[in-house]
């Protein structure tokens, strides 16, 4: 099985080291380069063709996005943005990948794994593919009860980005795409009680 490669782009040495040590604990994940400015980032993507670039949001916004997109499109490199609760939601796109930096270590590891694992070229990604984590069940419960992403975020004290990435994973794991479908799943699996809904 081939490894997934990461470039860490961040101005802060401490943050970079934190991410590198977190990622390298995971089997099959490898950080191939750390960079702290645009020129080196573009050079590194060009030369190393990484699977992912993990970049903090402010840094990302300062980049020449057109050039960046040109570079990554051909190489199929995915961008993962580091955000926190203060990140402006206006910039936020459902299709992108986010990691909430204020979460606990285990949650961050989980988020990275959730994003990257589907891209591993392997015969079977995970046997327990369709089993939801407890956190995902919490999110599912509120979604099934009809709460919006923002409301779920407030209830669970997590960022809206985290809610969305949980939702994406839930949908992927269960292969159920609509809210009413998720609601029925939640009832069938006793995640919510029909009388309470």
């Amino acid at each position: 099985m081939s490894k997934l490669t990461f470039i860490i782009a961040n101005k802060s040495f401490i943050v970079r080291r934190g991410l590198v040590s977190t990622i390298e604990e995971l089997p099959n994940f490898e950080v191939v380069k750390e960079v702290e400015n645009e020129i080196n980032l573009f050079k590194a993507i060009d030369k190393l063709t990484p699977d992912f670039v993990i970049i903090n949001f402010e840094f990302y916004k300062s980049l020449n996005i057109i050039n960046l997109n040109l570079l990554i499109e051909k190489r199929k490199t995915k961008i993962i943005k580091l955000v926190d609760r203060n990140t402006d939601n206006d910039f936020f796109k459902e299709t992108d990948f986010y990691i909430d930096i204020n979460e606990s270590k285990s949650s961050i590891v989980g988020q990275i794994k959730d994003i990257a694992t589907p891209f591993l070229e392997s015969e079977n990604i995970s046997i327990n593919n369709s089993i939801l984590s407890n956190r995902e069940k919490d999110v599912l419960r509120y979604i099934a009860l009809g709460f919006t992403n923002k409301e779920v975020a407030d209830k669970l004290f997590i960022s809206i980005h985290t809610v969305v990435s949980h939702r994406k994973n839930i949908t992927k794991k269960l292969d159920i795409h609509t809210v009413s479908g998720l609601t029925i799943y939640a009832v069938l699996n006793k995640i919510i009680d029909i009388k309470s809904s």
């Binding site: 369709s130 269960l174 292969d175 159920i176 795409h177 609509t178 479908g181 069938l188």
Partner: peptide, 16 residues
């Protein structure tokens, strides 16, 4: 088609 896909999955996978 989305709801249709969901219904199929509910019947195949999730309805006991």
């Amino acid at each position: 088609e989305e709801k249709l896909l969901d219904l199929k999955n509910l019947i195949i996978k999730y309805l006991p």
